[in-house]
Simulated assay, not measured.
Amino acid sequence: MSFSNSAGGSNAARTAFEFGRTYVVRPKGRHQATIVWLHGLGDKGSSWSQLLESLPLPNVKWICPTAPTRPVSLFGGFPSTAWFDAQDISEDAPDDIEGLDASAAHVANLLSTEPADIKLGVGGFSMGAATALYSATCHIFGQYGNRNPYQVNLSSVVGLSGWLPCSRTLKNQMEGSNEIVRRAASLPILLCHGSGDDVVAYKHGEKSARILNSAGFSNLSFRSYNGLGHYTIPEEMDEVCRWLSAQLELQGS
Rank of each mutant, 00 (worst) to 15 (best):
F3C: 12
N5M: 09
N5W: 02
A7S: 15
G9L: 10
S10H: 08
N11C: 12
A12P: 00
A13P: 03
R14T: 08
T15W: 02
A16E: 14
F17K: 05
E18L: 15
F19S: 13
G20M: 08
G20Q: 05
T22G: 11
Y23K: 07
Y23L: 09
V24G: 09
V24Q: 09
V24S: 10
G29F: 10
G29M: 11
R30M: 10
Q32R: 13
A33D: 12
I35E: 02
V36S: 08
W37I: 01
L41V: 04
L41D: 03
S46W: 05
S46C: 14
S49H: 08
Q50S: 13
E53Y: 04
E53S: 15
S54I: 04
S54E: 11
P56E: 01
P65V: 01
P65G: 03
P65D: 01
T66L: 13
A67W: 00
R70N: 10
P71R: 03
V72H: 07
S73N: 09
L74D: 04
G76Q: 05
T81E: 07
T81R: 01
A82W: 00
A82V: 00
W83L: 15
D85R: 00
D85I: 00
I89D: 02
S90F: 06
P94C: 04
P94N: 02
D96F: 09
I97F: 12
L100E: 06
L100W: 03
S103D: 02
H106V: 05
V107K: 01
A108V: 12
A108M: 12
L110E: 05
L110S: 07
I118C: 11
L120D: 04
F125N: 10
F125V: 11
S126C: 15
M127G: 05
G128D: 04
A129C: 14
A130Q: 10
S135N: 13
H139T: 07
I140F: 05
I140V: 15
Y144E: 04
R147L: 14
R147V: 04
P149G: 01
N153L: 05
S155G: 15
V158G: 00
V158E: 01
G159E: 01
L160K: 00
S161N: 02
L164Q: 09
L164G: 12
P165L: 05
C166P: 00
T169G: 13
L170R: 07
L170Y: 01
N172F: 09
N172T: 08
M174I: 04
M174G: 11
S177K: 01
E179C: 02
A184P: 02
A184D: 04
A185V: 05
L190S: 04
L190I: 00
H193N: 08
S195V: 06
G196A: 15
D197E: 07
A201Q: 07
K203I: 14
H204C: 12
I211L: 14
S214T: 11
S214D: 13
A215T: 14
G216W: 07
S218H: 12
L220M: 10
F222C: 06
N226V: 06
G229F: 02
Y231N: 14
T232E: 02
E236K: 06
M237G: 05
D238F: 06
V240C: 13
V240R: 06
W243D: 12
L244N: 03
S245Q: 14
Q247K: 15
